[in-house]
Design a protein around this nucleic acid. Sequence first.
DNA 1: TTGAAAGCGCTAACAA
DNA 2: TTGTTAGCGCTTTCAA
Lengths: 359, 359
Amino acid sequence: MTRKAVSPAVPPAPANSATLVNVAAAASVSLATASRVFSNPELVRQDTAERVLRAAGELGFRPNLLGAKLRAQRTRIIGVMLPTLENAVFAECWRGIEEAALAQGYSLMLVTSRYDPDRERERIEYLLRHRVDGMVLTVADAARSAVLDQLDAEGVPYVLAYNQAASRGKRYSVSVDNRLSARAGVQTLIAAGHRRIAVVSGAFVASDRARQRHAGYQDAMRAHGLQPMPPLSMPAHTPTHTPAEIERIRLFVTAPRAPTALFCTNDMLAIGVMSILKRLGLAVPDDISVLGYDGIALGGLLEPPLTTVVQPNSEIGARALACLLARLDAALPGRAATLPRTTLLPHVLRAGATVAPPP
Amino acid sequence: MTRKAVSPAVPPAPANSATLVNVAAAASVSLATASRVFSNPELVRQDTAERVLRAAGELGFRPNLLGAKLRAQRTRIIGVMLPTLENAVFAECWRGIEEAALAQGYSLMLVTSRYDPDRERERIEYLLRHRVDGMVLTVADAARSAVLDQLDAEGVPYVLAYNQAASRGKRYSVSVDNRLSARAGVQTLIAAGHRRIAVVSGAFVASDRARQRHAGYQDAMRAHGLQPMPPLSMPAHTPTHTPAEIERIRLFVTAPRAPTALFCTNDMLAIGVMSILKRLGLAVPDDISVLGYDGIALGGLLEPPLTTVVQPNSEIGARALACLLARLDAALPGRAATLPRTTLLPHVLRAGATVAPPP
DNA sequence: TTGAAAGCGCTAACAA
DNA sequence: TTGTTAGCGCTTTCAA
């Protein structure tokens, strides 16, 4: 640690550490020049820059982003709000976001909301206090979200990830086409010969995506003249294996005219359901087929590997971030790029081994 | 959005939005008083405070943490570095950290290192530039870590999570006793009748925990007069199911005198290995037993549920954060609490159904 | 209990 | 190409 006091200028000098002022003094240039070496190097002569850099090195100078941010009125921090990281979908998404942000010199501040609107409000307020330049977020229900309304009112730029904004609305979003992809997934079930197909989902009220995927299921059923069945709506988005939960599933799959295939609105749910089915003595896919949604890596590592609708999770994150940065750029004077509002990324059907013809 | 300009003082007033100055003016108090209402309310008279609060509410004032941080020379931001969130261990840990931090009014900045020392250095530098007050981190190998040495040299307070610091060293850490808990786990395997037990691990060089757990395995074996077997060291910490990987495992478990039980140094690995065993036609636990380590929730949701050594993941995170905050407090004048360096949290053995007597 | 004033470290006009 | 200067929004002595 260099802790040597510099000689010239700086009279009483509380001089705590290596600041730009010290560096400038050590290099015998003005504060402004020293600053430019770091923010606009092309404005300063080569050898001057080198002197400054050398001085900075010797003093162990590390730019204090706080000063820069305060002055520049932009923090280059992006706030990220995701429901939870314990569902790998969002952990994968975070990877995409982090990668993209750091590559562009942006910093991140992450909060998780647990699908809870109250928490969402609180966390967003917290991000706002940090004066994040913008946000990437996944909310429980984009159509009726207090936080999005607030953000809109305050003019804070944000991009939704996973939530699929209305195609003619004003909101930016990056997602797959939930309805269409779910429909495609269910169609493979129908193609395999299933007629009695049911949806297993987390709480619909807490997830617009679950509802959209359910709609896709209905589309597929109706398109084939099949009767949609009542869904099994679980309290949480990830399974818990409580006796009550197990019993509900037992009743659901052993009733007369029970479904021969289950479409689970996310992979974690599908994985949990499959293990419960196994405990109940039902073999997947021989006795009952299971289709997931999300495409988390884990699904492919199980045996049998989960058949599922794959979203490009880390790409959703990266693209959402890129879209946000583009918006921020566009807000700068001179730029006027019109960005597409809703980005729909392609989904893929992963053929695992959890779907077979009905018994 | 209130955008009204205030009348008195503030001559040319670029007046962009609701700042403390505006609030103070609107409440007819000085800037200092207005500030105190938010940071030291006990120093200001009740009714004055109320006037300020009312003005703040009307103007839609939101404290700019940047200004506060810059001036106060502490950011109340804690940097967090974890290897990845795609292993649920760390996602669960993050939950504990986030909960604890927000409860104490601290903010977080998360980066992930992918077990890569180069990335570790880069990410740490980034956190340092943000002037985080301290860090909670999990490094690949605490004993030989360039970043920890750097942090020590610079006097940045940090607390390790999962990495178990040497008990008489100077570093703070929160973890379970990796060696002892691994030993206890392997002992259950021995108690079940196994004699040929092998370790399956991620790259040892990249994880001190994997090495410690391996040492615990050796302890258990030797304590029972058994010969430790050579471990199967996988390139990554989570499985990938490439053909080469599957083939290595096949050779490992079908060789003459192959192990009858596998101790995997983390749960993700255990889960991946089990599915590969299944594909190879081996039944768990009838043909071969599997013991995991970590206790991620997912393990209990599989069928058969994974038998594993459970760490209190979210508590590790919460305690690491609490320990860090205590250190920060201790650094303040007047405090002199001596904190324990290494916190060892108790582990639990979760009896799943992946361990049975050898065939 | 309140106010006046001096910065925290940096950037960005503007001038030289 | 470089320097001078005025703050960004806030906290915190010191005095009143």
